[in-house]
Design a protein around this nucleic acid. Structure first.
Length: 804
RNA sequence: GCCCAGGUGGCGGAAUCGGUAGACGCAGCGGAUUCAAAAUCCGCCGCCGCAAGGUGUGGGGGUUCGAGUCCCCCCCUGGGCACCA
């Protein structure tokens, strides 16, 4: 509700300013929540999803959002996802999409792949079984091919928040380093173990290398080493989530094999490490315990040698405890490194890379942390991947004329594997190439694919192709609004997809979203109960009551566990339905309250205390206008003599117009815009003149407030406008610069930085006369204790600080 | 663990470029109105203090005439970590 209201306020504001605004709405309809609901309630995800969409549409309409419903789309409809399938086949033929093995969470009891969210403390959410890592074939988008463009493109997005750009840049993670090899011989064959490092300057300090459990070298070593085989099996337990990998205890085991140091020729032991990922880079890392904190801990734990090869002036190395400077690239110089001694980081990397290159054992390389985007999901409720597997022809993309591959909607998943595999009518088909019986791919696409291009489809929802010329007329999106939780994945994928579509000739721009507003999360408390098997049932905050610090379920009065404050989600059942609020107070109060509670970018802990205040303000606005209109509508003030009170009210009015315009347009901060209008209304309430001039100023104020609040509370403002200015459309008010002029201003007086009083000076007084007036003021006389001023700081329009 | 934010009264928050900390609102307190209540209106409202004044923006240090705002260190909360979306 919050993000849609934000969008609607901006849309209405810009419409008032004369722009042609398109505000569309669509439903990101595929995905896990629908499958979870299906499992819980035994209804097909399709039926559940359509019912949900109807419910949400009703709510959005109740909020009075100015949405162009003729452009509505749902990503689970074949007329939407067929174009996604069409593009998939094009990209597959182009090689932008390819197939490789990838590691997933496997639940051995339910025989199904689990989402990271479904792995709780290393166990499957339904079965409770220990989760294993398993390698399966998946389709990947080559997003890494666009890594450099995605990174560089951030510089062309002035309308994006800095923090989002920083997060994306870090995620892409460009680093320049050296790819180098440790040669070894195995079964009489000469092989090379490749690693990537940004610290080639520490190469002489390598005391071991660590490989992933799945690394061929590990597999080979385990063949006649049962203990190692057992360790490798242990490494394959647990989830694939990076957070789990990074926080788990680092463990390793010696393989007994060695590789050769590329420069010294020394034998280097090979270890298997549970923290080394096969799918990351080369699946192997060189370890320099003296200068890498993680390697240091690992070496201490297993008694591996620690060899200092970097020194910093004035610091003493000790292998007893890690010190920050051990990893310092900026100050360190090489020691114990033979011919490289004395070189700094950059020089040493260059020299070592050059030597490795001569040996054919390494070269400088730019690497990205970003990995290719795996989009295969072993789930039913998603867009079918348009591939047919033929024994003779291999993976064959479905020809355009056979699209869409329609997902049957009458399926109820049960949590054990993808039910599509059991749908013979879906699986069996003929190979488009040779006509022989073949099998349809049953994996579906990551739902991020649907959400990567819907914004473009809004421009041409009825086009009989993916996008037509209208997309280029509208794009890029002027104002995109999304939760900060999308800062990396969704927004990076959408940027990537836009470039894919550009390279297919579908759009002409490089970037999809010109201005981005990342709305803060709406968070609420979570409550749950746990059954004997450890399964959690989550309760909605509306059904929970907190008494004397103990949370109890209203229904049965028995306690529930407080799960902390988290973003509203279906899985934690802590969403708040705005329906009740709208029913009790009306859409305008609900909108005003939501916009007044916090600035859009900030997260908001939901609570409806304060909603009364929003409602009260609207009643006051209504009453003030009604009283004024009762006494007769007049023309708004334009010119003529005003007394001080009227002058001051007009100054506040035009100051408010200035502020509110800036708040909405530039700062996108509505709570302060609302507050400024409240202040103005408070001032108007104290302004009681009933003469013709006073009434014309009152008319001017009421007209302006009505217009300024119209984007936020459109219904009441339209009704008020009809009374105040019948037959005239609401228009954004303009600032009368002459009303802002002041002859006298107040300056604060500080003595030694402490506020001691104020003086009134003429608005155009020069620094010298201000200083004289300040020194003569009572405040300074009293607080300077007769001492001579050492320094006088005059900040024009603000304050005077006297240092004694 | 890593990356990104945030932390200001009893509460939501304001302070936009280093210049009056606490705008606006909620809650509370006092008063008016009322037979009474609701609603409405007026006033008070960071903390200590009778006052003068002191003190105060997560904690510690620093820069500056002046720091909520800038710098360094630490603590806590939230978001993300590639299969929630």
């Amino acid at each position: 509700m919050r993000n849609y209201t934000i969008g609607d306020v901006l849309a209405r504001y810009h419409a008032m300013r004369g722009y042609n605004v398109m505000q569309p709405m669509g439903w990101d309809a595929f995905g896990l929540p629908a499958e979870n609901a299906a499992i819980a309630n035994n209804v097909p995800p399709a039926a559940w999803t359509y019912a949900n969409i109807d419910h949400m549409r009703t709510q959005l309409q109740a909020l009075g959002l100015a949405i162009d419903w003729s452009r509505e789309l749902a990503t689970c409809k074949p007329d939407y996802y067929r174009w996604e399938q069409w593009l998939f086949t094009r990209l597959f033929e182009k090689g932008v999409i390819y197939k490789k093995m990838a590691t997933v969470n496997w639940d051995p009891v339910d025989q199904t792949v689990l989402a990271n969210e479904q792995v709780i403390e290393g166990r499957g959410w339904r079965s409770g079984a220990l989760v294993e890592k398993r390698d399966i074939p998946m389709y990947f988008f080559r997003i890494t091919q666009y890594a450099e463009e995605l990174l560089a493109g951030l510089d062309n997005l002035p309308g994006w928040p800095e923090r989002v750009k920083t997060m994306q840049a870090n995620w892409i993670g460009k680093s320049v380093g050296v790819r180098l090899a440790f040669p070894y011989a195995l079964d009489g064959q000469d092989e090379k173990l490749w690693v990537f490092t940004t610290r080639a300057d520490t190469l002489m300090g390598v005391t071991f290398v660590a490989v992933a459990a799945e690394h061929p070298l590990a597999t080979r070593a385990a063949a006649n080493h049962p203990e190692l085989a057992a360790f490798i099996a242990e490494c394959k337990q647990g989830s694939v989530a990076e957070a789990d990998m990074a926080t788990m205890e680092k463990k390793g085991m010696d393989t007994g094999l060695t590789v050769t140091h590329p420069l010294t020729g020394e034998p280097i032991p090979v270890w298997v490490g549970n923290y080394v990922l096969m799918s990351y880079g080369e699946g192997a890392v060189m370890a320099v315990p003296a200068h890498d904190e993680r390697d240091f801990g690992f070496a201490r734990k297993y008694g591996l040698p620690i060899r200092q090869v970097i020194a910093v002036d004035g610091e003493t190395f000790s292998s007893d405890a890690w010190q920050e400077w051990y990893g310092d690239k900026a100050r360190g110089v090489c020691v114990n490194s033979g011919k490289y001694d004395g070189l700094n980081h950059e020089q040493a990397v260059d020299a070592i890379a050059a030597d490795l290159e001569k040996l054919g054992l390494g070269e400088k390389k730019t690497q990205y942390r970003l990995r290719d985007w795996g989009i295969s999901r072993q789930r039913y409720w998603g867009c079918p991947i348009p591939i047919i597997h033929c024994d003779a022809c291999g993976d064959v993309p479905v020809p355009a004329e056979q699209l869409p591959v329609v997902l049957p909607e009458d399926v109820v998943p049960d949590g054990a594997g993808n039910p599509l595999n059991r749908r013979a009518d879906f699986v069996h088909c003929a190979c488009p190439k040779c006509g022989q019986p073949a099998r349809r791919e049953t994996d579906t696409m990551d739902t991020f694919v649907e959400s990567s291009w819907y914004y473009a489809r809004y421009a041409c929802p009825d086009a009989n192709q993916m996008l037509d010329a209208r997309a280029n007329q509208w794009l890029p999106v002027d104002q995109y609004i999304g939760g900060i939780e999308h800062a990396i994945l969704h927004l990076l994928y959408a940027r990537f997809f836009h470039k894919l579509m550009r390279d297919e000739g579908l759009v002409s721009g490089d970037e999809p979203f010109a201005n981005l507003l990342t709305q803060g999360m709406v968070v609420a408390d979570t409550y749950y109960r746990e059954d004997a098997a450890g399964k959690k049932t989550w309760f909605n905050p509306a059904d929970v009551e907190v008494r004397d610090g103990i949370a109890v379920l209203k229904a049965d009065g028995a306690p529930v566990i407080v799960g902390g404050t988290e973003k509203m989600s279906k899985s934690k059942n802590n969403g708040v339905d705005p329906q009740a609020l709208i029913e009790q107070y009306g859409a305008d109060t609900a909108r005003l309250f939501t916009m007044f509670a916090a600035p859009p970018e900030q997260s908001l802990e939901w609570s409806d205390s304060g909603v009364e205040g929003a409602h009260r303000f609207l009643r006051k606005l209504w009453k003030a206008s009604f009283d004024h209109v009762q006494a007769g509508v007049v023309a708004a003030h334009t010119a003529g003599e005003l007394d001080d009170a009227a002058k001051s009210l007009r100054r506040q009015l035009h100051h408010t117009i200035q502020k509110v315009s800036d708040d909405i347009e530039r700062r996108k901060q509505f709570n302060t815009a609302i507050a400024a209008n409240m202040e103005l209304m408070n001032a108007l309430a104290k302004f009681d003149g009933m003469d013709a001039v006073s009434r014309s100023v009152r008319q001017e104020v009421l007209e302006a407030v009505t217009a300024m609040l119209a984007p936020i509370v459109p219904h009441i403002c339209e009704a008020l406008q009809a009374e105040l200015k019948p037959g005239v459309k609401l228009a954004w008010p303009t600032v009368d610069e002459s009303a802002l002029v002041q002859d006298q201003i107040e300056l604060m007086i500080q003595v030694n930085g402490k506020l001691r009083g104020q003086i009134r000076v003429s608005a155009n007084a020069d620094k010298a006369s201000i200083e004289t007036q300040a020194l003569a003021s009572e405040a300074v006389q009293k607080h300077s204790e007769g001492k001579q001023p050492k320094k006088v700081v005059v900040v024009p329009g603000r304050l005077v600080n006297i240092v004694v």
